[in-house]
């Protein structure tokens, strides 16, 4: 026993060192799983408050830009609204079919149910290899893990850690996030990020024979559990053919400006749980 105590006293520093390193490694291990820890993340109350204070100061410098982006977004939304309203007056008879909630034949996507919430970005990083964004909404506002986050112009990321008043969002600028996407003609693929800069994304798994032109738009598709369909991701700037796999690698210019994020939308897909359960039960989940 005495020897044991002597041993501990002699190597106390080494033991403490090894203990702390093991704690660190356990922490690192845990974040790489989906249900990582919320304490050591910027969703933590202290970090959240510091970032909030900073954002309160920096906020005023970006008001003009934000105004412009909101105006642009309004314009696009108005355009879409007009497309839905306008009636071709040259046709003789306008048939107006009212859609009831029982109507299942006209609408292919009946059970899409998304809830949009606004949130302010209080911290943003674009230069790590996994980038996170902190927003000022937490589970008190109904934000939970794995909700999609969009900006006015495109996709942003997925909620990863949530506390009472803050949440940290894993941005698309991360090796951990893979978004299923489609080309204009409906070809599906995946969008990933390979650290080429904060505005360049890469689309993979597109077959070689599909012709992709510079300037084509890429959208999210219906497969994703979190992202609503037909949200713009970016425009094509370059295509390459990967000889080995016979697939194309498409470089995209992201439609979201990750340097200047101020407001985002948190999207809750109410059907995500049901869809995931069904897919898990068939064993073909993605």
């Amino acid at each position: 026993m005495r020897n044991f105590i002597l041993f501990i006293r002699r190597f106390f520093n080494l033991i403490l060192f090894l203990g702390l390193e093991i704690v660190c490694i356990v922490l690192i291990e845990h974040t790489n799983t989906l249900q990582g820890n919320d304490i050591v993340s910027s969703a933590n109350a202290v970090a959240g408050i510091v970032y909030k204070k900073q954002s309160d100061v920096v906020y005023y410098f970006g008001l003009r830009k934000m105004n412009d982006s909101l105006l642009n977004e309004n314009a696009t939304l108005r355009k879409k609204l007009d497309l839905l309203h306008s009636v071709d007056t040259l046709k003789d008879s306008v048939v107006h079919i009212s859609i009831t909630s029982n109507d299942t034949t006209k609408h292919v996507v009946k059970y899409a149910d998304y809830l949009y919430q606004t949130a302010r970005v209080i911290n943003n990083s674009t230069n790590a290899s996994d980038n996170y964004i902190t927003i000022n909404r937490g589970y008190n506002d109904g934000v939970s893990k794995n909700m999609a986050v969009l900006s006015g112009t495109g996709i942003v990321g997925r909620v990863e850690h949530v506390s009472a008043h803050f949440a940290s969002v894993l941005s698309v600028l991360s090796a951990k996030l893979k978004v299923s996407a489609k080309l204009k003609d409906g070809t599906n693929g995946f969008v990933v990020w390979d650290e080429k800069g904060a505005d360049i994304l890469t689309m993979i798994d597109v077959p070689q024979q599909i012709s992709v032109k510079k300037g084509d738009t890429i959208y999210t598709n219906n497969f994703s559990l979190y992202f609503p369909p037909d949200i713009m991701i970016g425009t094509v700037i370059k295509t390459e053919v990967e000889k080995k796999k016979g697939m194309q690698i498409i470089s995209l210019l992201s439609s979201t400006n990750f340097h200047k994020l101020q407001y985002v939308y948190v999207v809750d897909n109410k059907m995500a749980m049901e869809k995931k359960q069904l897919e898990d039960s068939t064993g073909k989940s993605k």
Binding site: C24, T31, V40
Partner: peptide
């Protein structure tokens, strides 16, 4: 780590 969402890497 807390501020940068890198849990444990900087601490290590």
């Amino acid at each position: 780590d807390t501020f940068m969402n890198t849990a444990g890497m900087h601490a290590c």
